[in-house]
Design a protein around this nucleic acid. Sequence first.
RNA 1: GCGGGAGUAGCUCAGCCGGUAGAGCAUUUGCUUCCCAAGCAAAGGGUCGCGGGUUCGAGUCCCGUCUCCCGCUCCA
Length: 478
Amino acid sequence: MSTASDTLSESTPAPAPPPSDLLDRLVSLGKQRGFFYQSSEIYGGINALYDYGPLGTRVRRNIRNRWWRSTVELRDDVEGIETSIIMNPQVWVASGHVAGFSDPLVDCTGSCRRRWRADHLPAERAARGRAPDAPGCPECGGDLTEPRQFNLMFRTFLGPVEDTSAQAYLRPETAQGMFVDFKSVLTSSRQRVPFGIAQNGKSFRNEISPGNSIFRTREFEQMEMEFFCEPGTDDHWFDYWRAERFRWYVEELGVRSSRLRLRDHEPDELAHYAKAATDVEYLYPFGWGELEGIANRTDFDLTAHQTASGVDLTYLDPVSGRRYIPYVVEPAAGVDRIMLTVLIDAYDEEEVRGERRVVMRMHPDVAPVQVAVLPLSKKEELTGPARELEHRLRPHFATEYDETQSIGRRYRRQDEIGTPLAVTFDFDSLEDHAVTIRERDGMTQVRVPVEGLEGALRDELARFRERTAARARGGSAG
RNA sequence: GCGGGAGUAGCUCAGCCGGUAGAGCAUUUGCUUCCCAAGCAAAGGGUCGCGGGUUCGAGUCCCGUCUCCCGCUCCA
């Protein structure tokens, strides 16, 4: 087994969670600055669905890009694909979602008003429903409603005619696309087991109780990878991905390790398809929550699809000549949750000269803006060259130009959205052709010639990256 | 779905026993050779979540509804 969580839980005291009102502050900030807001707000909003604003969209793209880069582009053993959101409904029959992705629920109409899963109640209680002499609710003895099906898959219809033969589903996970396309990818990519197939995209679940802002929504975005390997090597790959995925959050997103843990599932909480599972969890203001699940799905899915479709999904190893259905190790992460985590983990407040400074200590590659270009004054002699400078940097960095209000205010505004570097063009710049680079965390400044600015910014960002990862490793950021 | 709390300016909130809507911050404009939320002056911004009712009059009282937060329940 990997050591990340074991080491942590043994050698460090219980980590301090973020302050409990942080989520509220982030929701305000998110709306004010354009990270995320409730969907369809002018119509009164809609439950558990969110839109991402200009800054939030940048952060999400950065998260996706970093995942794609490390999971697909930098590896020669993982292929990326994109499959359709609506698939042949038989996919969801074979995968077990049609039968198993729903719960029959009954409500107590007596004094306790609790809700129960009908299939968890003793048979005679549920069966008698509302009968007056039935034992009813296990808690208070009150009457129970008839069981109602809560199917967690969104249903829709393919084509304009809404009859049951046209019924289809919005995918509740992207994973099935990788299983169903396993054979096509195998033959078109010249990959050999062990190898992985990855994709990122939207999934939909009719959650019974969504909540905690963007943590649990009904439409969400997944980043999933199915790693196919020979049976018998699956434990090894499970441990490998378990450690690799933990590392990714710390090293590449800068999430402090002291608020991360790997939690292995107990045998009785394992999904029916899994032999082993571990959650990467983060300590949110509302408690530990799952960021990513790593599961050993065995050969469950490929076997199920082979049986249901009648298509041979076995793999013939060209070296050993062995034929088998590969086992699958799956790391499955949620983009929305990662963004929430990044924001929560980076959020910091400090006192500077008696004033409160809000600063997002984000990893420079995740931050929505990397370099802000600011003329010291709004005088045209400065704004002209500063604008020009910003346009020159724009192809190389995520830049933003801001000339409104005082320079101090603009620094603070950039701090609040996590911009690591600000370039300030002042009156001296007109003479000495040099500008100031101001850095977010310590508010220190260096003067550099405009000529070498691009390289200087690159160097600064590299140092930033190292600092962020070191801080995340050490635990106590801020 | 149940219980509790809450919806008033972009954000945070005040608004008493019903009398015609306010603060701080933010935003915009002007002036200031201006490096850490600086100063001065001015401006814009609200059908008080939505619908109905009571009343001479409703942000305020009543009913309905939608949304958010917390808890329960649930979570492939």
